[in-house]
């Protein structure tokens, strides 16, 4: 079983990823795809007159201000556009994909943070109407029943809070939680970089191997967004996933390459 997180950033090629995933699926490999949607959400939100607002947490993480309107645009773009685009590409490659969000069947459930501390326009603020949170429970039974029935699950934000609100969650961390819940052999995180680099963006400084126990130490090399991915990797390894690979989502057959060890392998 593989869990494959598909990054939405510029350059990541959905077509080649779908082709590669469909080939593996047709060969009998059980796999689950996970995707996010921040890049495209920004674009649509701006067109709909509700441009994205980013806030920085007190410890430096930047994240989307997710008020109710933003949550609905984020949900629409992730679950209604990106998800269905991937499902379409997979169906065309004869892989019977089923697209679901974390809200459906409570596949991803977790606590909604009722208050978040941010630095916003230079002020330290408490935001109360934010729909953000973390995946704490995964409905592995529903995912497995789809796999057993011959389907390829494609999972999208949002997740759902215990009260039933959709919540914005980090796709990488959700992928890590899913990999642990399914006891996947590998979690593959595809993005528009070849992996973790000592001196970003110099690709010759690619770190190819990281012993699982040292993953926290490598946080220093991680740029802003990559920090979250490294946190996700640490959580997955701690949760029993044997291998986490940060790999390049821009190359042909990117999943096969990652399984073959191309990228930053954590095990």
């Amino acid at each position: 079983m593989f869990v494959i997180k598909i990054g939405g950033s510029q350059g990541v090629c959905f077509e080649s990823i779908a082709e590669d995933a469909a080939r593996l699926f047709r060969e009998g490999q059980r796999l689950v795809l996970v995707h996010g949607g921040s890049a495209q959400t920004n674009q649509v939100a701006t067109q709909l007159g509700h441009p994205p607002e980013f806030v920085t947490s007190v410890s430096g993480f930047s994240s989307r201000r997710t008020d109710r309107k933003t949550l609905e645009i984020f949900t629409m773009v992730c679950a209604g556009h990106i998800n269905k685009r991937l499902v379409e590409l997979l169906q065309k490659q004869k892989a019977n994909a089923v697209g679901l969000s974390g809200l459906d069947g409570r596949i991803w459930e977790g606590a909604r943070k009722d208050a978040i501390k941010v630095i916003h326009q230079g002020r330290r603020m408490i935001l109360r109407d934010d729909f953000t949170g973390k995946v704490e429970k995964v409905n592995a039974a529903l995912i497995r029943s789809l796999l057993d029935a011959g389907y390829l699950p494609v999972l999208s934000p949002p997740a759902v809070s215990y009260e039933g609100d959709p919540i914005n969650i980090d796709g990488d961390r959700a992928a890590a939680a899913t990999a642990v819940a399914l006891q996947a052999e590998a979690l593959i995180i595809l993005s528009n970089v070849p992996g973790l680099m000592e001196k970003f963006p110099d690709e010759s400084t690619l770190i190819t191997r990281i012993p699982a126990k040292d993953v926290e130490k490598f946080m220093a090399f991680a740029e802003d967004r990559m920090k979250k991915k490294v946190m996700g990797a640490a959580e997955a390894v701690a949760g029993g996933v044997r291998q986490v690979v940060f790999a390049d989502g821009r190359i042909p057959a990117p999943i096969a390459a990652a399984i073959g060890g191309k990228g930053t392998v954590i095990s």
Binding site: G36, R64, D114, A115, T132, G133, P157, N168, I169
Partner: peptide
């Protein structure tokens, strides 16, 4: 009193 809360962020 301002609430305590740990670090969890969305996309």
């Amino acid at each position: 009193a301002a609430p305590e809360e740990e670090e969890d962020w969305g996309e």
